[in-house]
């Protein structure tokens, strides 16, 4: 039926201009319109600015809040895991540096994941009023989190320098120049997993309530609080299921020259991330057209 209509219309001479917008019932998987993003890049900038500014609009400490999350958590971890529980560390790395580097990356990942996995729930009121490519929201969140991460990494550099002056026996490696790849990897992982989680859970509240739980378990199983070398041989295989581990361990290795890297673990991490990204985008393109009806 639709095809005959198309033919009929293209035959009418006064339809000289092409149509700008075509609305059809959603296909099972409709391809994302990537070219649309470029028309909306101004919106992307505005959204990044919004996330960045609104976060501290009504706070006294302002941008300092971003530093407090990893700093306070690191402090607590230094006390608990360093002095009370005495997790075995790789030699030489100051505990503060160890936790701060791991937590900074972990919070970038987990905060992004938390936002993206609640995409429909927290942006529904906007999505039901105006149209724009929905994927702009998670991308803007990743970018504004990246700006926060940059501030935190500057802080990390300052802490590192101070510790070195105090006689810490670690020095950064040249590999550190490759650390943007690790951040990009974590961003892709948060996007893929977040979109998939969002698509699977927006309808069923009890499923979306599992997210804080997942994130909490994630923090304790992603070698944030211990080096990979502290994992007993018998359960080493679990490394292959958590694609965050190689990112964090690799970052620490770049930063301090200490860490345990398994190349096959990096490969599986990349494979898992790519698969999650594909699943995430596919599930998103399915649900993005349908979710408004159910909120």
């Amino acid at each position: 039926m639709n095809t005959t209509n198309t033919q009929k219309n293209s035959a009418i001479p006064d339809n000289h201009l092409p149509w700008d917008i075509e609305i059809t019932p959603p296909k099972f998987l409709s391809p994302l319109k990537w070219n649309e993003f470029f028309r909306y890049k101004n919106l992307l900038g505005l959204l990044v600015y919004r996330d960045f500014v609104v976060y501290y609009k009504q706070t006294i400490l302002g941008p300092l809040w971003w530093l407090l999350q990893p700093v306070i958590t690191s402090g607590v971890f230094v006390i608990f895991f360093g002095f009370i529980l005495k997790v075995p560390m790789d030699g030489g790395t100051p505990l503060m540096l160890f936790f701060l580097s791991g937590l900074t990356l972990w919070f970038y990942f987990s905060n992004s994941l938390n936002q993206i996995a609640n995409l429909f729930a927290s942006n529904g009121s906007m999505f039901e009023k105006v149209y724009f490519p929905r994927l702009i929201i998670p991308i803007s969140q990743l970018l504004s989190n990246l700006m926060k991460l940059t501030l935190e990494l500057i802080f990390l550099a300052i802490v590192y320098t101070v510790l070195c002056f105090q006689g810490a026996q670690v020095r950064p490696t040249w590999w550190l120049l490759l650390s943007p790849i690790i951040i990009f990897y974590l961003a892709v992982l948060a996007l893929g997993f977040g979109l998939l989680f969002n698509s699977l859970t927006y309808k069923y509240k009890d499923l979306s309530l599992t997210l804080p739980f997942i994130i909490q378990i994630g923090m304790f199983t992603s070698s944030v609080i211990h080096p990979v070398s502290a994992i007993p041989k018998e359960i080493l295989y679990y490394l292959y299921f958590n694609p965050v581990i190689p990112a964090i361990e690799l970052f620490r290795f770049m930063l301090t020259g200490q860490g345990t890297i398994y190349p096959d673990q990096i490969v599986t991490g990349i494979v898992v991330t790519v698969v999650l990204l594909l699943l995430g985008i596919m599930s998103f393109s399915y649900t993005e057209k349908r979710f408004i009806d159910t909120i």
């Binding site: 149509w19 700008d20 609305i23 349908r290 408004i292």
Partner: peptide
């Protein structure tokens, strides 16, 4: 109007438009 504004999608049919839409 929500369908025309691309907030919700129809189950059936075809809509074509020219120009920017402000709703």
């Amino acid at each position: 109007l929500k369908i025309l504004s691309r907030i919700v999608t129809p189950e059936k049919g075809l809509i074509r438009m020219r120009g920017r839409i402000s709703s």
